[in-house]
C-alpha cells in the first residue's frame, strides 16, 4: 500500500515537471538555454524587482511568450534584449547601459576609495611630530619608560 502511494506520488511529481517543460518547446538545447538565461536577466516591467522567470504577472507571461517566439525565430541574445528595450526601455534589462547618468554607479565607488586613500596618506604625513630633546631630557624619558614596564 505504502509503496503504491509513493509510486503514485513520484508519478505525479514527474507529470507536473513534464507539464512545465512542455509549455515552451524548442528546436535545440541552445535555444532552451538562451530562453532560460533571458528570462532570468530580463526584468518584469510591472513588478519592480522580479525577473520574468520569477514573476506571475500577466505581462511577465506575455513577455516570456514573446522571448520564446523570438528565440525560436533564431534571434540571438542581443537581438531579443534590443527588442525588449525598444518597447520597455533600459529598465527591462538588469544590466544598465553606461551613459552620462549611470556612469556614476562605477565612478562613485572608485572615487570614494581613492579619496579615502588620499586622506589616509595625507593625514599620516601631518601626524609626524618633530621631537628635539637634549641629553638630560632623553635620559629622563628613558627612565620613565623603563619604570612603566
Amino acid at each position: 500500500m505504502k509503496a503504491l502511494i509513493i509510486a503514485g506520488l513520484i508519478l505525479l511529481s514527474t507529470a507536473s515537471a513534464l507539464a512545465t517543460e512542455d509549455k515552451y518547446q524548442f528546436d535545440s538545447e541552445a535555444q532552451q538555454d538562451l530562453f532560460f538565461e533571458l528570462s532570468k536577466e530580463l526584468r518584469c516591467p510591472k513588478c519592480q524587482n522580479q525577473n520574468l522567470a520569477d514573476s506571475d504577472a500577466m505581462i511577465a507571461a506575455d513577455l516570456k511568450r514573446k522571448v520564446h517566439d523570438l528565440v525560436k525565430q533564431g534571434q540571438n541574445k542581443d537581438q531579443v534584449i534590443a527588442y525588449m528595450k525598444q518597447r520597455y526601455g533600459d529598465f527591462v534589462y538588469y544590466q544598465p547601459p553606461v551613459n552620462s547618468m549611470t556612469i556614476w554607479l562605477w565612478l562613485l565607488p572608485a572615487l570614494f576609495v581613492v579619496s579615502g586613500m588620499l586622506w589616509l596618506v595625507l593625514s599620516r604625513k601631518s601626524n609626524k611630530v618633530e621631537i628635539n630633546l637634549d641629553n638630560a631630557q632623553q635620559k629622563r624619558v628613558d627612565e620613565l619608560l623603563e619604570r612603566d614596564e
Partner: peptide
Amino acid sequence: LSLDLGVTG
C-alpha cells in the same frame, strides 16, 4: 499591440 506599446498593465 500592448506589448509593442510597452504597456505594463
